[in-house]
Write a protein that binds this DNA or RNA. Structure first.
Lengths: 265, 265
DNA sequence: CGTCTGCTTGATCAGGGTCAACTCAGGTGG
DNA sequence: CCACCTGAGTTGACCCTGATCAAGCAGACG
């Protein structure tokens, strides 16, 4: 059911893989400096307290952080957990736009029209930093050094969408899935997890929607990669066996790709 | 101190294989207030002079405003003319990302990595307002009222890319072309031109790249719309005959679309 | 224990890509 | 001025990739 969830403080078991002091169970507020760390941007003034503090809110799997059409007044930063952002199109189908995870900023798309065009759902327990937009804007004024970083973060999101457009416009199904796996591996690595073995937090349907494919094609492609020894697949568990092959596959045009797969290498 | 760099020190390195360069005829300068008008955003303080002024530069068809890989230090606003932005992917194919026209801001994607990932080419004679990024950022600090607008403009670009992703992920060829025509009609109308009869400034190849289709499919689809009496086509000249049909067509899933076209209405 | 959701795999088929031939408009140079 | 060339556009024939429809399986849960 599409029950609208209120951001309520619910407690969350601490993630075993966490290393940051920020991620302690029940941490409720972060300083500006903490937030910069989560976003992985430079912050040159390690002052004790800028007067900024930001609330953390925990969400459980299935809960919505914001819904489409809801008035915009908040940006969100993922401190831990996995989410998906999606748009509901005219015919009621969902289009997955991104899978935000630790260090990602989302909600930006709501600034323009003063309401979120998309909605974001927790795929696992999540710890989210809430950034009131007015505060966000004030930071740029008060810390000129951070201003460029803020624009940079927004620009990064734009570049990411451009890359998606690029891929959806030209890549084959195999290339898309390969690229998706490589991208996930990189992101997990950057977060300190294994880039070789990980669990997908989303369904085949979600992946298909994200990549512009059907869930059957995603499933078949993963099976094919498994056959070729590029990866191992067991439901949500993925093991990367041949990263190089995936990396090169993910940018091959269709003919070369076909030859490569046929040959079994 | 505030970024009073000489704007004419604009470095648009002349690319050996391009006709990139500046043309100095009709050089103009715009005030901040003028720029806001071009961007169609609110500007509540119509002060005589904020100390901001922005250089206009003219480009001729085929010239590049910026190239991929070039160091980022400028944003651009279209005052008049038509352009295309594109990325060159690994295999050398071009992927058209957008067709900037009057009132559009571009170059934002360069902020993040300090160099433009894309390049932008004039499809006609263009008058472009150059906005040094440092000045752009300073505006937000000095005019807090404009700050939100600035974020809003960036957010708008993100939403536009999301809409592209959405379309590329699910719409049929007919739906894409229909949506493209409707979008163009709306933009021409907003600019004061006819929304019924206009000339395409880009080739079939460009349109196909933008929509994730081949040029042949674009050509066939336009011919089909012509057959059905939805539009008239003569090379670059388009006449919209049945806007309602295009509007409804552009959001139909495949089966309903097929039925619609078969029936001849 | 039945139901539901997610995943896999098979069979079929059509939307649109690919290859190819041809026309047309504009530009260039003899 | 006309012959020629080049790039854009149209149209046809073919066929491949991936969508669609369908069946079966496994794990979660009331």
């Amino acid at each position: 059911m599409l029950s609208m969830q209120e951001p309520q403080a619910v407690q969350i078991e601490s993630n075993p893989c966490s290393e940051s002091g920020l991620q302690r169970t029940g941490k409720l507020w972060s300083s500006l400096s903490d937030v910069c760390k989560i976003l992985r941007i430079a912050h040159r003034s390690p002052l004790a307290d800028d007067g900024f503090s930001f609330q953390h809110v925990q969400f459980k799997e299935g809960q919505r952080i914001h819904t489409a059409g809801q008035p915009f007044n908040m940006l969100y930063i993922v401190n831990s957990g996995f989410l998906k952002s999606l748009m509901i199109d005219e015919s009621g189908n969902e289009q997955v736009l991104s899978f935000p995870m630790k260090g990602d900023l989302f909600g930006i798309d709501g600034i323009h029209s003063k309401q979120y065009p998309s909605e974001t759902v927790a795929l696992s327990s999540c710890d989210i930093v809430m950034i009131p937009f007015k505060k966000f804007a004030a930071i740029g004024r008060i810390h000129p050094g951070l201003e460029t970083e803020i624009y940079g973060v927004m620009s990064r999101e734009l570049v990411r969408e451009q890359a998606m457009v690029n891929m959806l416009g030209s890549a084959s199904a195999e290339a898309r899935v390969a690229r998706f796996l490589v991208s996930l591996a990189e992101r997990f690595s950057a977060m300190g997890y294994s880039g070789k073995d990980f669990n997908l937090r989303m369904t085949r349907h979600d992946i298909g929607s994200y990549l512009g494919l059907t869930l059957e094609t995603v499933s078949r492609t993963l099976s094919a990669f498994n056959e070729l020894g590029l990866i191992t697949v067991d439901q949500r568990a993925i093991g990367i066996k041949d990263m190089d092959a995936l990396e090169s596959l993910h940018r091959l045009p269709a003919p070369a790709r076909r030859a490569m797969l046929k040959r079994g290498n």
